[in-house]
Amino acid sequence: MNELLESLVELIRRTSAEIPDDVNRALVTALENERKGSIAESALKIVERNIELAKRKSQPICQDTGSILFYVDAPIGLDQVAFEETAREAVRRATAKGYLRQNSVDSITGENDGTNVGPGSPAVHFHQHRGDALEVRLVLKGGGCENVGAQYSLPLEKLKANRDLDGCRKVILDAVLQAQGKGCGPGILGVCIGGDRATGYEWSKKQFLRFLDDRNPDPRLDELEQDILRTANELGIGPMGFGGKTTLLGVKIGAANRVPASFFVSVSYMCWAYRRQGVELGAAGAIQRWLY
């Protein structure tokens, strides 16, 4: 097996079986904050035990191993066709090893060929840069949380949401309210203000590549992120929607330009089983370091 293939299989294994440190720290804090003896505390204790078990047994944290999203930052000259072929083979092998569930279904026939490889699966997003580093990030996003994502078009009279940051705040909090526990909270929001419908959702998901404890360099978005996190955690939705203090672990917001006629706010919800990892690869494809 060539080195790149081996590295990508290992990236998939680790992403599926191990929660990144930044997310784990946030979950530990959430557990400490919940009222002792509450259902919320029981739920987070199960989450904590689950994280330990998955890591020890090298098995999926969650059985819904999700949509497979690769983000590749590559130097100019990388053979993207060859890379994508290798990524598809890595997905096949990781599925055969049980790191990924047989999770990809033909949308027309409903058939599942058991490989996880098909049109759009895995999704590979390439981004070229002028440096030398080849970085590959992977997000496995389960269907439960994907289903509670929402896209709003402003103005939205029903929520009294205008085309300004306060309007954005209203619709983002509405997404949290509508999601309740159905996205396997405590969750993490990735949001994009602006863009068209497709890039809006795409950019909202790219927010999940940020560290959970980072701060937004744009002070207006930073303030909005902190406000939504604080407000959401005052709503009492809690882990799994059982009621409790921790509804969200983090909020990450980006902004893209829009055309004057459109004003979309796209909200992606990530479950507590926040499966996101990354590697920097050497020239031959070997893993040089882990990014999270």
Binding site: A43, I46, V47, R49, N50, L53, A54, K57, Q59, P60, I61, C62, Q63, G142, G144, G181, C184, M240, F242, C271, W272, A273
Partner: peptide, 13 residues
């Protein structure tokens, strides 16, 4: 009966 979503390993055990 609400199980903890995502707790695939605890429940598999």
């Amino acid at each position: 009966l609400h199980a903890v979503g995502g707790a695939a390993q605890v429940l598999a055990e």
